Simulated assay, not measured.
Amino acid sequence: MCRWLAYAGTSVVLSDLLYKPEHSLIDQSLHSRMGVETTNGDGFGIGWYGSDAGTPAIIRDTGPAWNNRNLREIAGHVRSPLFFAHVRASTGTAVQQTNCHPFRHGRWMWMHNGAIAEFHRLRRDLSLAIDPVLFPSLEGSTDSEVMFYLAVTFGLDQDVPGAVARMAGLVERVGRDEGVEYPLQMTIAVADGERMWTFRYSSRHASRSLFCSSRADAIRALHPDLDFLRGVSEDTRLVVSEPLGDLPGVWNEVPESSYGVVQPGWDEFRPFKPEPV
Score class of each variant (00 low, 15 high):
3 R>T: 06
77 H>Y: 03
181 E>R: 12
35 G>Y: 02
145 E>R: 11
242 E>F: 06
12 V>N: 07
265 G>S: 06
165 A>I: 03
274 P>I: 04
217 D>Y: 11
153 T>K: 00
62 T>P: 07
33 R>H: 11
66 W>K: 04
261 V>D: 02
156 L>R: 00
34 M>C: 09
164 V>H: 01
99 N>W: 14
215 R>C: 08
36 V>N: 09
183 P>S: 06
28 Q>D: 06
234 E>R: 13
97 Q>I: 15
110 W>H: 12
186 M>F: 04
226 L>T: 04
114 G>P: 02
48 W>V: 01
93 T>Q: 14
79 R>V: 06
221 A>L: 14
156 L>P: 02
160 V>I: 14
243 P>M: 04
134 L>S: 08
212 C>G: 10
205 H>W: 05
116 I>Y: 04
190 V>S: 11
69 R>Q: 12
44 F>Q: 08
150 L>W: 04
257 S>P: 00
143 D>V: 03
274 P>V: 02
156 L>I: 03
111 M>Q: 15
114 G>N: 10
257 S>Q: 01
227 D>H: 03
180 V>Q: 10
31 H>I: 00
221 A>P: 02
25 L>I: 15
138 L>S: 08
76 G>K: 03
98 T>Q: 15
217 D>A: 14
178 E>S: 12
203 S>I: 08
172 E>R: 12
13 V>E: 12
259 Y>E: 05
114 G>L: 10
89 A>E: 06
171 V>E: 06
106 G>L: 10
126 L>Q: 05
82 L>W: 00
198 T>F: 15
93 T>N: 15
195 R>E: 15
58 I>M: 11
35 G>E: 02
269 F>T: 13
46 I>L: 13
147 M>K: 07
152 V>L: 14
232 V>D: 01
196 M>R: 10
277 V>W: 03
222 L>A: 14
266 W>L: 06
272 F>N: 00
121 R>T: 12
245 G>D: 15
193 G>H: 06
59 I>D: 09
214 S>Y: 11
235 D>K: 11
99 N>M: 13
67 N>A: 14
49 Y>L: 09
154 F>Y: 15
235 D>R: 09
31 H>E: 01
249 G>N: 05
230 R>C: 08
166 R>T: 02
111 M>V: 04
185 Q>M: 14
272 F>V: 00
23 H>S: 08
163 A>N: 10
56 P>S: 08
74 I>E: 13
74 I>N: 11
138 L>K: 13
197 W>I: 00
65 A>H: 12
5 L>G: 02
190 V>D: 10
55 T>N: 13
216 A>F: 03
21 P>L: 01
61 D>V: 10
214 S>D: 15
203 S>P: 03
6 A>L: 07
